[in-house]
Computed example of a mutant assay.
Amino acid sequence: MLILDNITIVICIILVVFAICSSLFDTFFRKLSDEEDADGVENQKPVSVIIISDNNGRELDDNLKCFLSQDYPAGYEVIVVVSRDEDGTSDVLNSYSKYQNLYTTFVPDTSRYMSRRKLAITLGVKAAKNDMILLTDAVCKPNSDKWIASMTSKCRNGVSLVIGYSNYSDDASKFKIFSRLHREYAFMYEASKGIAYSTCGNNLLFRKSVFMEARGFQGNLKYVRGEYDFLVNKYSDFGNTAIAISPDCMLIEEAPSRKTWKNKNMFYVETRKHLLRSFKHRLIFNMDMFFLYICLLFAVSSVIYSVLCYNLLVIPFSFIALVVPFIVRILSAKRVMGLFNTHVSLWKVIPFELALVWHNMKSAFRYRMSDKYEYISHKS
């Protein structure tokens, strides 16, 4: 039975509005703007690649050669800074002694009251001979031998900070890969439209002169993690930040263990408390999740209402509120996954997006139940 009254009109209007908002607020619906690289090899400058190793002897043995075999005519050095060596990392580094552009340094065992990883980065930057610094971790490897060239090509027109994309290898769980893509895409979109908020990757280019002038990690050295977050949040400004999304710019990170994945998310809950512009970033994500859920719940509720009240006019609008946002979200995710060469089945997109908020809540709950002193360095 078709009933056209005020309640029916209001319900139909709300369904259409929710369908539109759910589509427009989708993180993947927004498009990144990535300028074409215009600079040629004649404008390239020498680079210092800093790799942080924290008991990563096996990963270094697997990945270091990829960094040492980059195609970059301007020349580069690779500095491996060992934060901890309890697994024979030194022996691995000794096996690469034939490479003339490889240098190593170690964080002193007596270092205390500060993050060893942030100290490792600081030591690496101070040891660097070049102003351009490319920072990453031993658990990563370049997707191409043009990684350095592609990242440095973005460092022009006043740009002093370049955020490159990285994600887990294909043997990681699909949800972890999707979650990483979703968060990193949101970060990159913010960076492309103004001041960057953060990054969840480990693929960063910045200038030594800027880092030293602003006194590096001053103000947050005591926090155990968040080194990439603090670098981006502190040093990004209007006009000085670029994103790098071409396949040559990407890094592939080893699939994290369950413990590593859990700790990474818990440490981020602590880190974001100390970042500037955190409210704005979280508001955008929360609006995305709000309209995704409210559209789904209202559409289902309206179907139940139409059946109980024999008001069939509401059903097609409920169908629109259910199907249209899902189609838009799936197509947008497909476009983004193609852009970043990420492989997740399209039928998993909606379930994974629905799971993101619950995953974040679980990480926040674990953080609240944990000892807060675990996130602050007391001694090493």
Results as ranks from 00 to 15, higher is better:
Ala128Arg: 03
Arg84Glu: 01
Pro73Tyr: 02
Tyr96Gln: 09
Thr122Met: 11
Ser97Tyr: 00
Ser48Val: 11
Asn101Leu: 06
Val125Phe: 02
Gly57Asn: 04
Val49Asp: 01
Leu64Arg: 02
Gly57Val: 03
Asn101Glu: 06
Pro46Cys: 13
Met114Phe: 11
Asp62Trp: 08
Lys126Asp: 06
Arg117Val: 10
Thr110Arg: 04
Glu86Val: 01
Leu123Val: 10
Tyr113Asp: 06
Tyr99Asn: 11
Arg58Asp: 12
Thr122Gly: 11
Lys45Ile: 12
Asn43Leu: 14
Val82Glu: 00
Ser90Pro: 00
Leu102Pro: 11
Ala74Phe: 04
Lys65Cys: 12
Ala120Trp: 04
Thr105Leu: 10
Ser69His: 10
Pro108Ile: 05
Ala128Lys: 02
Phe67Lys: 09
Ser83Thr: 12
Glu42Ile: 13
Ala74Trp: 02
Asp61Glu: 13
Arg84Leu: 02
Leu102Phe: 07
Arg84His: 05
Ala120Met: 02
Asn43Gly: 05
Ser83Gly: 08
Tyr76Asn: 09
Arg84Ala: 05
Ser95Tyr: 03
Gly57Cys: 04
Leu93Tyr: 06
Cys66Lys: 14
Asn101Lys: 13
Arg116Thr: 02
Glu42Thr: 13
Lys129His: 13
Lys45His: 07
Leu119Gly: 07
Phe106Ser: 03
Leu123Glu: 03
Thr105Glu: 03
Glu59Val: 13
Leu68Tyr: 10
Met132Arg: 04
Val81Ser: 11
Asp87Thr: 05
Asp71Tyr: 08
Gly57Glu: 01
Lys98Ala: 06
Met114Leu: 14
Ile121Asn: 06
Asp61Ser: 15
Leu123Asn: 10
Asp87Lys: 00
Ser83Gln: 11
Lys65Phe: 14
Glu86Leu: 09
Phe67Tyr: 15
Ala128His: 05
Ile50Phe: 08
Thr105Cys: 12
Asn43Ser: 15
